[in-house]
């Protein structure tokens, strides 16, 4: 018995998504209206991507569903506090990595809840699913030749997992600045049952010497906003691309979060950042929170996810 018949109608034939929704609504029944709107605005391709992600996310949830749902609610409360600060002050609350480390990353109890909450946003938030659908269909799905893959900041490993599932992927690597995060990525990949070897390496791309080529597809999703110098990070990654290689950049605009320190406010700022790193933007897709109109979202500073496919200029 599902808690919301209207959501069930939109999710007919998508049992994994429905199961995630049911778990969340158990912990947070008042969230049904928000979720209905989020799902109603998705295209059939987005709903298909949602279901694919939900199958993987359910493996990660295991029997901790109720706790993870409670953590999602807790995370949304934290984000609402940040939204209030952002709209009052016009900036993110923190601006340095050291501040984020002191307040968020070094607090293991906080991080555990926050990371759980963010996992469910991959299913429940329109803009997160929309850029994931872009990744599946217009990044991985648009590959026409075998590729060597690098992801920076793999988090729960969902994108690495789907890259590994592509017949065309060969060497798969993921880098993170945190050994703890990489251990969690490894556990997640094991739980999802990743089908190919994935090398996980501790690398700080703001400190390391840039490699000369090596990768046909590089992914950096929801990472740049956590960095003091996203320009330097993209310059580093541009140098790691093989000739003809592509980079997929997913970065949110006007998206206050406890550990977001670099504010991008417009698509033009994203283009300038990417081009400044010696990359040429091939495609940029914009998806606002809850599928709001992009023009309205940018004007009102509602969070928008920018998905960029770029190549070396």
């Amino acid at each position: 018995m599902t808690a919301s018949p209207e959501i069930a109608e939109v999710l007919a034939g998508r049992p994994a998504t429905q199961a995630v929704v049911d778990t969340v609504l158990e912990a947070w029944p008042e969230h049904a209206g928000y979720l209905l709107k989020s799902f109603k605005r998705r295209t059939p391709e987005m709903l298909e991507a949602t279901e694919a992600a939900a199958v993987a996310v359910r493996k990660l949830m295991g029997d901790a569903g109720p706790q993870i749902a409670a953590d999602y609610r807790w995370t949304c409360d934290r984000l609402r506090d940040e939204e209030l600060f952002f709209h009052r002050e016009g900036r993110y609350r923190l601006s340095t990595f050291a501040e984020a480390m002191a307040e968020v990353y070094s607090d293991h109890a906080y991080m555990s809840r926050y990371v759980n909450g963010l996992l469910l946003t991959q299913i429940l938030w329109f803009n997160h699913v929309a850029t994931f659908e872009m990744f599946l269909n217009r990044v991985i799905g648009a590959s026409s030749a075998p590729f060597d893959y690098l992801e920076v900041g793999p988090g729960h490993g969902l994108m690495v997992y789907f890259a590994a599932a592509s017949e065309l992927s060969r060497r798969l690597e993921a880098w993170d600045v945190s050994a703890v995060s990489l251990r969690e990525t490894r556990q997640a990949l094991d739980r999802m049952g990743v089908e190919k070897p994935v090398a996980l390496t501790e690398v700080d791309i703001l400190q390391a010497a840039p490699p000369q080529g090596g990768y046909d597809l590089i992914v950096i999703s929801e990472v740049l906003e956590h960095l003091e110098r996203p320009d330097k990070a993209l310059g580093f990654l541009a140098s790691a691309l093989n000739p003809g290689g592509r980079i997929f950049i997913n970065v949110p605009l006007n998206s206050p979060s406890p550990d977001h320190i670099y504010l991008l406010s417009s698509p033009d700022e994203v283009t300038a950042l990417v081009e400044g790193a010696g990359l040429a933007v091939e495609t940029m897709e914009l998806y606002a929170t809850q599928g709001a109109r992009i023009e309205f979202a940018l004007e009102s500073r509602v969070s928008v996810s920018a998905g960029v496919i770029a190549r070396k200029a």
Binding site: G33, Y34, K37, C76, R80, E83, L84, H87, R88, T289, Q290, S300, V302
Partner: peptide, 13 residues
């Protein structure tokens, strides 16, 4: 429909 927790914050401000 458009009055959710996030738009509520923008309304408040």
């Amino acid at each position: 429909e458009e009055w959710d927790s996030l738009s509520h914050v923008r309304l408040i401000v």
